[in-house]
Amino acid sequence: MKIKKLEVYGDSTLIIYQVKGEWQTKDSKLISCKKYLLELIKEFEEISFTHLSQDKNQFADALATLAVMTQMEEGQIMQLLQIKARSEPVYSFMIEEETDGKPWYHDVQVYIKNKEYPPEASRNERRMIRKLAMGYFPSEEILYKRSSNGELLRCINAKEARRILFETHEGNCSTHRNRYMMAKQILRRGYF
């Protein structure tokens, strides 16, 4: 690729410090890899190695996932990948506003009760509503989602979701944990 200047970031303290020569390489499996890497380093005019802790290396995890998902042949020209970063965490966009005043599950609920589709629904959207409806269970005005273990989780609208998030994070049930643990706790409390 004729790259002459390279910045390398890694989340393995062991590898980064061994390559930089600050730590010795004792593992026989790594000695040959390090020797090969030191030969590759000679191909660059300028190269630097920087250690990133794993919590600051989410971008590398995402790229590694993409690399595993794609297969490339030698000499193949790769299309440019443009990445945009959000100014807010992604999970803050998960509670959709109800612009029409109806909850996110309204179409499924109407289909289950009356076997009616929204007037503007396309053929594919109708098929999707039918498929979705199989995993839900109505009880009067409340709709429940059947979980993988058969438990019924109450479907909630945006207003209820905000209240439950507040209660789970700061109220009587406060966890002050990360978003994954909060989501698990909300599911354990019986909400979807």
Score class of each variant (00 low, 15 high):
Glu74Trp: 04
His51Met: 00
Thr65Gln: 07
Glu45Trp: 15
Leu81Asp: 02
Ile77Val: 13
Lys42Thr: 15
Ser48Met: 10
Lys84Gln: 01
Arg86Ala: 00
Phe44Tyr: 15
Ala62Cys: 13
Tyr91Ile: 02
Met72His: 15
Ile83His: 05
Phe49Glu: 00
Ile47Val: 09
Phe44Ala: 08
Leu80His: 06
Gly101Trp: 12
Phe93Leu: 15
Phe93Glu: 09
Gln54Gly: 03
Gln58Asn: 09
Gln71Val: 07
Ser48His: 15
Phe44Asn: 05
Glu74Phe: 01
Asp55Val: 11
Gln82Leu: 05
Val90Asp: 07
Ser87Leu: 07
Gly75Pro: 12
Glu96Arg: 12
Glu73Val: 04
Leu63Ala: 00
Asn57Glu: 07
Ala62Gly: 04
Glu46Tyr: 12
Ser53Ile: 04
Met78Arg: 13
Phe49Lys: 00
Pro89Met: 07
Asp100Met: 12
Glu97Leu: 02
Lys42Asp: 06
His51Pro: 02
Phe49Cys: 05
Gln71Phe: 03
Ala64Val: 04
Lys42Cys: 11
Met78Asp: 01
Ala60Ser: 09
Ile77Cys: 08
Ala62Tyr: 09
Leu63Pro: 06
Ser48Val: 13
Ser48Lys: 15
Asp55Thr: 10
Asn57Thr: 04
Lys56Gln: 15
Lys42Ser: 09
Leu81Ala: 13
Phe49Asp: 00
Met78Ala: 00
His51Val: 05
Val68Pro: 00
Leu63Lys: 03
Gln58His: 08
Gln76Cys: 03
Thr50Ala: 08
Ser87Gly: 04
Tyr91Arg: 15
Asp100His: 05
Ile47Thr: 01
Glu98Pro: 10
Ala64Pro: 04
Asn57Asp: 10
